[in-house]
């Protein structure tokens, strides 16, 4: 049992920290690309910008500025700064629900991001700055894992993490492999490794597929791998598990809508035929996945957070 508002905040903490981490990685890859050949850098920057939903692809001409804006722009609600600030604001609102150890990690990241010297620190060593932020976000999750009760609140937090992750990876794959792209297909070795880096998947990929960079292997890995924690399939398994835990806590097992949606989505990813998917192009399938993630979010709210009061009044 926990307050609906608290569950809502914990869920959004999860979403925002995941978004911040993902965007850190996109920024990092963009900056990394500036060190190499500029044409590839532009393509990588374009992919990253499109993946965060930035329509202004002209920014891709200057990856450094784009990365800095994505990191520190306080006006942009999609920036890493904003995600961290939102996560911390939510954490402040449920400060009584998260352990001091967990809070301290998140607060530390926020204090560094909001420091007046943050822009200088970013200028002095952009990749170090992003690297530290990602490492601290991992510490935040680790501190939560090690010190918070793995009960209902924890499940709401992780539900936020995995739903957000599934959607972020889904959007990234849509940009890279979808039909919507107007430019030439991504086939360049450098661009492909960059895509894997954006999904923090390069090393795990190499262990499975070796250094053979094939678009269809990458798609397969980021979408359907059963064990890689950033594959969409893995995310949907976690979503299903945490939803089951939440409904169990709520005594609503079998009755709640989101559980059914999550089970269906997980089954889709578990049993899809890869040959068929490649034959018809992944666009339609990715769209279904993203739509169903959104539907799970809505139905989560209907069941646990913004339910109609009339249905819950004592007789």
């Amino acid at each position: 049992m926990m307050l609906a508002r608290v569950a809502d905040s914990l869920y959004w903490i999860g979403r925002y920290v995941e978004r911040a981490e993902h965007n850190c990685r996109l920024s990092d890859v963009m900056l990394n690309a500036t060190l190499d050949r500029s044409e590839a850098a532009t393509q990588v920057a374009r992919i990253a910008l499109a993946a965060v939903g930035d329509a202004d692809l002209a920014k891709a001409q200057n990856p450094y500025d784009a990365a800095r804006a994505l990191t520190l722009d306080r006006q942009d609600s999609a920036s890493i700064y904003s995600s961290i600030a939102h996560a911390r604001e939510n954490a402040r609102q449920v400060r009584d629900q998260i352990t001091t150890e967990t809070w301290e990690r998140l607060n530390l990241i926020y204090l560094r991001m909001s420091d007046p010297d943050a822009a200088r620190a970013f200028g002095d060593g952009s990749q170090q700055f992003l690297h530290d932020t990602i490492a601290d976000l991992h510490l935040f999750k680790g501190a939560g894992d090690a010190t918070m009760s793995h009960g209902e609140g924890w499940s709401f937090l992780l539900l936020g993490v995995y739903l957000e992750r599934a959607q972020l990876i889904g959007s990234l794959l849509e940009v890279v492999f979808g039909d919507g792209r107007r430019r030439r297909p991504v086939g360049d070795h450098f661009a492909l490794t960059s895509v894997l880096r954006m999904g923090c998947a390069l090393e795990p990929y190499l262990r499975v597929y070796t250094a053979d960079m094939q678009p269809r292997y990458i798609l397969n890995f980021l979408m359907l791998d059963a064990d890689f924690p950033r594959s969409i399939r893995f995310c949907t398994q976690e979503i299903e598990n945490h939803l089951a835990a939440i409904t169990r806590h709520a005594g609503l097992s079998g009755a709640a809508g989101p559980e059914r949606l999550a089970g269906r989505l997980r089954a889709r990813l578990q049993y899809i035929d890869m040959e068929e998917l490649v034959a018809q192009g992944p666009t339609a399938f990715l769209k279904t996945v993203l739509d169903e993630c959104a539907a799970i979010h809505d139905s989560l709210y209907d069941a646990f957070v913004a339910y109609p009061l009339e249905s819950r009044l004592p007789a």
């Binding site: 508002r5 569950a7 646990f304 957070v305």
Partner: peptide, 28 residues
């Protein structure tokens, strides 16, 4: 946090039949 009591805001509370309830994930 130190008392282990929920921290509520006005919007978390509902009055029904002169009883006070809080909106939780499991209902009132």
């Amino acid at each position: 946090r130190l008392m282990g009591a929920p921290l509520v805001e006005g919007r978390d509370l509902v009055i029904h039949d002169n009883m006070v309830y809080m909106r939780t994930t499991t209902g009132l």
